[in-house]
Simulated assay, not measured.
Amino acid sequence: MPPSDDVVLRVEDLVKHFPLKRRGSLRAGGVVKAVDGVSFTLRRGETLGVVGESGCGKSTLARTLVGLEKPTSGAVRFGDSTVHTARGRELRELRRRIQIVLQDPYTSLNPRRSVREILLQPFEIHPDVLPKARRLDRIRELLDLVGLDASLHLDRYPHQFSGGQRQRIGIARALALQPDVVVCDEPVSALDVSVQAQVVNLLERLQKELGVAYVFIAHDLSVIRHISDRVAVMYLGKLVESGPGAGLYDTPRHPYTKALLSAVPVPEPGRRAQRQRILLAGDPPSPVDPPSGCRFRTRCWQATDTCATEEPPLAGPDHPVACHYPLAA
C-alpha cells in the first residue's frame, strides 16, 4: 500500500445496486448489481485506468465516485472526508476537489450557454475560490491550457465547435477549480481516432503540469495502456485483476483479462497470425442474477466445481487477481 499521505482517494468495498421496477412497483428482491464490492486507492498525480466490456459497471462507478449516485454500501474517502456523508461546507469543498469529465461532449455542455458562461459557472457556484475581477483572466488561462484561443472561442456556443473542441471545453471546466482528482468517464469514446490521441495527450500534459490524479474509464485497451500507471479490470460489477499497466498487459493473470487483450486489434499483419485469439463462449450473465462463486466461471475455459461454490478474493501484493487458478506470470 502507498503511504497514507500520498493517497488522495480511497474506495472501500463500494456497492451500488439499482432496484428493478415492474409496472410502477418494485419487484421483491430484484436489483441490478452494477457495482458490487470495489476497492482501490488512488495516489496523487497517478492515473488509474478502469477497463471492461460494456455493462460491467464502469460508468456507475464513475458517477458514484463523484457523488452523483449514492452507494448502497461501502465508502469513497477523500482525505479525512467521506464523499456520501459530507454535508455543508465539507461537501462543497469535496465537490470542488473531485471533478468529472463526461463521456459525450455533445450533451455534457449546455447548448444555451456560451463558453464564457460555461466556464464562469464553477466560480459562481464556488465564489470564494476566486475574486470576480480575476475570473475572466482565469477563463482565458484555462482555454489556453487546453489549446483553444480565447479571443476566437470565448463567446461561441457548443454547436459551433467540433467534438474534440467540445471535449477540451469540458476538460477546462473540470480543471477550473484546481481539483486534486478528475474522473474521466470514457472521455474519448465519442471522438475520431486522431482526435482521441489529441485529447489523451492533452490529459497527460495537464497531469504533468498540474499534478492532478485521474480515474480514467474506457473500454479501449490501447488508450488505457497509453495513459495509465495502473490498470483495474472490471467484470460484472467486480474488479477481477489490477496492477501496473506494463505488468498487466505483458503477463495477465486472470482468464478474462487475457481474453480481453487477445481482442485488441494488431496493426502489423505478420503478428496477427502469431497471436492466439480467445473467443469466450456465451453471453455475459445478467447483473440481476450473477453466477455463484466466480462470476466469470460460466465463460471460463478452466473453471471447476470450486469456482461455482467459492468466490475468489482479489488477492496479491503488487498484481492482485481474483481467480482460483490464475494464469502463470
Score class of each variant (00 low, 15 high):
Leu203Lys: 03
Gly247Pro: 08
Ile227Asp: 11
Pro179Gly: 04
Ser222Lys: 14
Pro290Phe: 10
Gly270Pro: 00
Val188Ile: 07
Tyr256Leu: 11
Asp289Ser: 10
Val321Thr: 14
Thr298Gly: 11
Pro284His: 12
Arg230Ile: 07
Ala213Pro: 00
Asp192Glu: 12
Gly245Cys: 15
Leu280Ser: 08
Pro244His: 10
Ser262Gln: 05
Arg271Cys: 01
Ala263Asn: 06
Ile217Arg: 00
Thr298Val: 14
Gln196Pro: 04
Val212Gly: 01
Pro287Ala: 10
Val264His: 03
Ala259Gly: 06
Asp318Pro: 04
Pro265Gln: 05
Asp318Ile: 02
Pro269Trp: 00
Ile224Asn: 13
Glu310Pro: 00
Glu209Gln: 04
Gln274Met: 09
Asp250Cys: 10
Ala197Glu: 09
Pro291Lys: 02
Val188Leu: 00
Pro320Asp: 09
Ser222Thr: 15
Val195Phe: 03
Asn201Arg: 01
Lys238Phe: 05
Leu203Ser: 08
Leu261Tyr: 08
Leu202Val: 02
Thr257Glu: 11
Pro284Trp: 09
Tyr256Asn: 11
Asp289Phe: 05
Gly282Arg: 09
Asn201Leu: 02
Leu191Glu: 06
Gln276Tyr: 03
Arg225Cys: 13
Val231Trp: 10
Ser242Asp: 01
Tyr256Arg: 05
Arg277Leu: 13
Leu191Arg: 04
Pro252Met: 13
Leu260Ile: 07
Ser292Cys: 07
Phe216Tyr: 13
Ile217His: 01
Ser189Trp: 07
Ser222Asp: 14
Arg205Trp: 00
Pro285Asp: 13
Leu206Ile: 11
Lys238Glu: 15
Gly293His: 08
Arg225Thr: 12
Ala322Asn: 04
Ala246Gln: 14
Tyr214Met: 01
Arg277Val: 14
Ser189Phe: 03
Val193Leu: 10
Pro255Arg: 10
Gln302Ile: 15
Arg271Phe: 11
Val182Ala: 03
Tyr249Trp: 13
Glu310Thr: 11
His319Val: 09
Leu248Phe: 06
Leu236Glu: 10
Ala246Tyr: 06
Val264Ala: 03
Ala246Arg: 09
Leu221Asp: 15
Gln302Asn: 13
Arg230Thr: 11
Val195Asp: 03
Val200His: 02
Gln207Thr: 04
Phe296Trp: 14
Val200Lys: 01
Arg275Tyr: 03
Tyr235Asp: 08
